[in-house]
Design a protein around this nucleic acid. Sequence first.
RNA 1: UCGCUUCGUGCAAG
Length: 374
Amino acid sequence: VVSLNKQIQSYGRRGLVREAKRVFDAIGSLRDGFSWNFMLIAYTRNGYLRDAEDLFEKMPRRNAVAWTAMLVAYAASGHLDDAERIFSEAPVKDIPCWNAMLSAYSRNGRVDQSRQVFDLMPQHSILSWNAILSAYARAGHLESAKHIFDKVPDPDLVSCNTIMSAYVNAGMLRDAKNIFDGVAMRDMVSWATLLSGYTQHEHVCQAREVFFSEMPEWDLVSWSLLLLMHSGSGKIADAKHLFDNFPQRDLVVWNSLLTIYTQNAHFELAKLTYQRMPEHDSVSLTLMLTSHLEAGNVHEAENIFVNMPWRDLVCLNAMLSGYAQAGHVEKAKCLFDSAFAKNVMTWTGMMSGYAQNGYLTEAKLLFDDMPQRN
RNA sequence: UCGCUUCGUGCAAG
């Protein structure tokens, strides 16, 4: 059973969910707690939220690992309410579980609540420190991030990479570079963080210098960063040339090309890319939906949206704004009312939809109803 | 034998 469990784990990690399930079923009644957990994680890691929920319900026993895996799955898909519910229902909350709740808030834009969790938890591991550091980095609170970084008991490479990304997000590339230079054992994340500073802020020469002359090796992350650098300047042909010469392309690389076409309003190229790519995920669907909206094809966008196999909050927000901008305020409102979740983007999209179409009273009423206003 | 932290892709306004 132990070796079959390891097979489930291995299939899950490689994205082969059906194969994992086949092994899980084959074990039958000999299944132990590990079998259930590995199957659950195979689902959660690959975005099979519904299957994960079903399995979680059927589990004969649930330990802290299962509760935490479920919590992370909800948080990653924007279901913050469900993540909170799982956390409060979990009978045993160990440090990883607290860490997961902390990150759940930060991933969903709630830094203050991340901090509350950090202050409430019984102990801190290095992962807790890195998680709160990352929460501030993501939120753009550079001073708080620096303050935390100075208090981390034993900063590791992840801590250094995270404070670096805090500087990058704040546009302070000299400081990011200083941290980078002070790190002895850099990994590919350190290199990617530095490179992303230059590409995001369109320091083209420095980006090329790092990429072509300094990096020890290239991976999918560095390729896609370089590719996206061409989006802001609209150098479509250069981007396509790079893309054609990549040794490997994963879904993110394909989506990055689609992003460039979408952001530069090349509808036909976007459509062609979309048709040619080997698979689609929520990001691809949202990009194609956005391309259709830009081209004025509201019905095509709608078609993608209603046929989506999963719920996705970002995609819902894109559709909502699309309706609003096309003047379909009533459809936007309908989508808003029936939304499976709402975040700041959902509320903002609906409000600006009202405002742009002259419904100022409704916009104000909605503003007053908005929770977590800041 | 399992879960939690850092890097690349999508949504409003700017």
